[in-house]
Amino acid sequence: MKQVYILCIDDEADVLEAVERDLAKLETVFPLETASSADEARSVLERIKEAGGEVGVVFCDHVMPKETGGEFLRWMEETPEWRVTRKALLTGQAGLEATVSAVNNASLDYYLAKPWTREGILQAAKRLLTDYVIERNLEPLPYMALLDTARLAENAYTRGLMSDT
């Protein structure tokens, strides 16, 4: 089984801590990696890739020094190995223009406004990870209990992912 990670990028350490706390329920199956800048995120991605892992979903702050979240997500979208990663913008300050640009250029999958609720971010993560598991055609069993069980089961039988062997 390939290790699927969640990546969270924000220049504020307390935001990363809050996300870590809120997504603790998923940690057993989807380890969370954090980064405080786009550059640090790139080295985290490199490390994950070298270990043979994948990134299922990335939550990225928009307003960061040097490189904005929108730009970073766009870079991910244009890099073949991270294209399939589900991308969420986690922000309070992105204006309409930045948001539209992120939707259009980084094919943004989710917009999570700060401040978020624990239930809100958990549901978003579950939905995006379910999308990822389905899109990647991963063997669904290890993920069923944590994610959207019905959708994974439906996908498994309509696409014939499992057989009587």
Binding site: T149, A150, A153, E154, A156, Y157, M162, S163, D164
Partner: peptide, 16 residues
Amino acid sequence: MSNTATTAMMMTVVLP
């Protein structure tokens, strides 16, 4: 049908 596909399908009925 395959036992496995049937189970996966029925799970979508059972979960609700």
